[in-house]
Design a protein around this nucleic acid. Structure first.
Lengths: 122, 122
DNA sequence: GGCTATTGACTACATCCGTAATCGAGACGA
DNA sequence: TCGTCTCGATTACGGATGTAGTCAATAGCC
């Protein structure tokens, strides 16, 4: 397992993580606009995710309802780790330092993170 | 520009970011073990990176020396942002929170980041 | 001057990805 | 019962990717 989730597949997963189980049609309706897919495309992606055992299905009448088999948290953890490993030698500090250097952290971001860290230490 | 760098290409870039200019052969020798590429593979990747204008070359005798045209920092910034946008709504705080929750932050990580943030505020 | 080794260029090819059309089986209305 | 609509399954297809072989030019060796 631990099969790769492609970008298009990820969009489908976000829908299912947000709400499930859903039919193929429901998923299609919930795909964010901009990603202008035909119903067939959604079905193909669901099929691929099924084949990879990343989602499961249950019959409901003459159609399927799909639900995630993988927790969003697990997926997110894996992706985050991959990025940190690849670009920051596996450490978060350089990532934060990098963002700070790039002025991509506002004062309120900093305050939020400080508060979070304070809470973690208690 | 701002062409996509694939995974295999990224391995080549890391070598060049670390040291440049290098010949194709030098790059091949510096690719980390485990990634067991033939010399031809390295040359193909260099060619693709050249075509995308991500690296440049200069003649040195009858061969080329390659060097990056893109800063590692810029690349890293883009990738980090992409991850945060995709998984954390573009905010760093949830990423930190997520890692903390997963016990992927040691006490010394937390201390380091706190020190970093403190420095940022001054 | 011809043979051989090196180097970049070009070609190859299987897989994955994004996107979608088509097909076949069952459900449903006429 | 027959055509139609709806689903999932299968097939399609161009482009990117990972990996590598072959070709043509050149440069050095004998």
């Amino acid at each position: 397992m631990a099969e790769r989730i492609s970008d298009a597949e990820h969009a489908v997963m976000e829908v299912l993580w947000d709400e499930s189980p859903l039919s193929a049609q429901d998923v299609g309706e919930r795909i964010p606009a901009g990603r202008d897919w035909s119903a067939n495309t959604v079905k193909t992606l669901l099929g691929r995710l099924l084949a990879k055992n990343i989602i499961g299905h249950q019959e409901e009448g003459r159609r399927y309802l799909y639900r995630p088999l993988v927790e969003r948290g697990d997926y997110v953890a894996g992706e985050s780790k991959k990025l940190m490993d690849r670009l920051f030698g596996g450490k978060l500090t350089p990532l934060v330092a990098h963002l700070a250097e790039r002025d991509e952290l506002t004062d309120s971001d900093i305050a939020e993170i400080e508060a979070l860290l304070k809470a973690l230490k208690s």
